[in-house]
Amino acid sequence: MKSVLVTGGTGLLGRQVIPRLLAEGATVRAIARRPGPQRPGLTWIQGDLHAPETMPRAMEGADTVLHLATQPLKASADLDLAQRLLQSLPASDVRHLVYMSITGLERMQRAPYYREKLEIERLFGASGVPLTVQRSTQFHEFIAQLLQRLTVGPLALVPTGVTLQPVAVQAVAQALVQRTLGDPAGHAQELAGPDTLTLEHLARSWRGRRGGLLRLPLPVPLFRAWQEQAAVGHRAEVVGESWASWLTTTTRERAKAVLT
């Protein structure tokens, strides 16, 4: 039976991964400032990942680490977390390190966050601990949150030249669990959703009849990094439901919540 330490267990992906690991018979330890729901086989380690004592304490008894924690809005935060993790590995029993990463990093180096993620992959690869790197394209939920942030009054600002291939978090979680419980695979097959769509198309379908779109070049590192289909999984395995299917389900669930 594998014992897996999960960082970022209360995040979008972590909430999908933990129950799947438990269903496969693994025991799970998860670090969180605010622990999530209790489940048989799950131990919450309350602590701050940036605190020096948290990681060594959390690794006790774990043979696998699944590193999901990320803080994209805070400069160098992910690199700091990765270095703290690496510092704790020599004194642990960890024999497999699994890292959740992002499709197209080599093509998206205009953004500091993506440069940092690629550096973390390099550091983990040089650690001497058997490694699996699982990359995927952006989750449907992330795209929706992004479009919400780009909405100003009745208008949605749509950066030009952006094409994405959003993927279902559930499908990535299922694949990630199999990678975590399997043998180290180095760089695993990347994952992507079934449709390659412009950000304009994504915005129109997400907004429906709610206001208009304003297309313009936004000089933001993220959007510059996504130019020329850099974020698309050109050789990725296609998994999960489409953006249109996810959007239909999400809209229906929201309507149901309003009625109940």
Rank of each mutant, 00 (worst) to 15 (best):
F139K: 09
G161C: 01
T103G: 03
A82K: 07
M100L: 11
V232R: 04
P35N: 07
R135G: 06
S101R: 00
T7H: 03
S127L: 03
E119G: 04
D78I: 01
V167F: 04
H140L: 01
L21R: 02
R110S: 11
G233H: 10
H201V: 13
R235H: 15
L73W: 12
E253S: 15
G208P: 00
R95A: 05
F223K: 03
L247D: 09
R33K: 03
Y113R: 00
A75G: 08
A236Q: 08
P130D: 03
G211A: 08
E60N: 13
R179M: 06
V239L: 10
W206E: 14
A77T: 08
A171H: 01
H201E: 12
R33D: 10
R224V: 13
G11T: 11
L85S: 07
L181K: 03
P130Y: 01
L150Y: 04
L68R: 08
K117W: 06
P37H: 05
V162P: 04
R254A: 12
P19A: 07
I120P: 02
L218D: 11
G104S: 05
L5N: 11
T70N: 14
R179Y: 13
P40Q: 05
R135V: 02
K256Y: 15
R15Q: 10
V162D: 08
A236I: 02
F124A: 04
P19I: 04
R235C: 12
M108K: 00
R34C: 07
F223H: 07
L259S: 15
L49Y: 07
V133M: 07
Q145R: 15
R122D: 11
T260L: 13
E241T: 05
G61L: 08
R29N: 11
G161H: 01
R254S: 10
L49T: 03
V152F: 14
F142H: 15
E253L: 14
Q134K: 07
A82I: 05
A69G: 02
P37R: 02
G193E: 04
A30L: 00
V169E: 13
W246N: 02
E121A: 01
G36D: 09
G128K: 06
V133S: 10
G153V: 05
V162H: 01
A185V: 00
L118P: 03
R107S: 12
G125F: 04
P217D: 08
L13T: 08
D183Y: 11
R33W: 08
L146Q: 13
V238M: 12
L216E: 11
A82G: 14
S245Q: 12
P219F: 01
Y113Q: 06
L68H: 10
V162T: 05
E237Q: 11
E116V: 00
L81V: 09
F223C: 06
Q71E: 15
A231Q: 09
T248R: 15
G36S: 01
M108P: 00
R209A: 14
G161T: 05
V172Y: 03
A225L: 03
T198F: 02
V129W: 07
G61T: 11
Q165K: 09
P217R: 14
L214R: 13
Q71G: 14
G186A: 00
V28M: 02
A203M: 08
A175Q: 13
R179G: 01
T260D: 11
L86G: 10
